[in-house]
């Protein structure tokens, strides 16, 4: 039923967590980097199992993909004002559970455009909010949840620190060897001042 053909007419069968299957066009599916990495070049002999996600969520995700087939390559989140009416409707008609499920599925399928729009939407919901207002929108992670995450991050941070230290060593060396370090420093210092304080008011 499926082949690695590039024609947008090719349909693929997707299997959801309920065991249901439904068609998705090749063009829509190719927006998923996960699909591209796993199936594009080898084809699939039967339904592609995305069984961690329910049918409604997957259909919603691929609805977005079908719609954005002809859009230019993703180049970063759009501003609220730049979203089309269709995009706004797409997001607005989802309830919170569906929205979170769509983010999870989109993230797994590695659909950069959809994941980024969803995340940008969350960030926008929290824009201009102080702490008391934020707490109405998001719940906080528990200590246990964070502990596990922290351990992984600490390892990465230690490695990054080593790289940064080495870079700093090189930078220091470069500074000493540069013919005119004062030029750079003047520019840096001037930049620091000009934005607000390099004006002589007559207060």
């Amino acid at each position: 039923m499926t082949s690695p053909a590039s024609s947008s007419e090719v349909k693929y069968l997707i299997e959801s967590s309920e065991g249901n299957t439904f068609d998705v066009s090749g063009a829509a599916l190719r927006q998923s980097n996960t699909f591209n990495a796993m199936f594009l070049n080898i084809g699939a002999d039967g339904p592609i199992p995305f069984t961690d996600y329910n049918e409604a969520t997957l259909k919603k995700v691929f609805e977005y993909c079908e719609h954005s087939v002809n859009e230019e390559n993703y180049s970063g989140p759009k501003h609220q004002d730049d979203l089309s009416k269709w995009d706004l409707n797409f997001f607005n008609e989802m309830d919170q559970k569906m929205f979170i499920d769509v983010i999870n599925a989109s993230n797994f399928l590695d659909i950069e455009r959809l994941t980024s729009y969803c995340c940008e939407r969350i960030a926008r919901m929290l824009r201009g909010k102080n702490t008391q207002e934020m707490i109405k929108v998001i719940t906080l992670p528990t200590a246990e949840e964070l502990e596990a995450k922290q351990k992984v991050e600490e390892k990465k941070a230690a490695a990054a620190k080593k790289v940064a230290e080495k870079a700093a060593e090189t930078a220091e060396k470069t500074e000493t060897l540069e013919e005119l370090p004062v030029q750079q420093l003047v520019q840096t210092t001037r930049n620091k001042l000009t934005r607000k304080y390099l004006s002589f008011s007559n207060e």
Binding site: Q96, I100, I103, N104, N107, F108, T115, C118, C119, I122, I135, K136, V137, I138, T139, L140, P141, T142, E145, L146, K149
Partner: peptide, 11 residues
């Protein structure tokens, strides 16, 4: 309210 940590790390 929803949990931000419930989202995938990339998200």
């Amino acid at each position: 309210a929803f949990s931000l940590l419930g989202l995938p790390k990339n998200a």
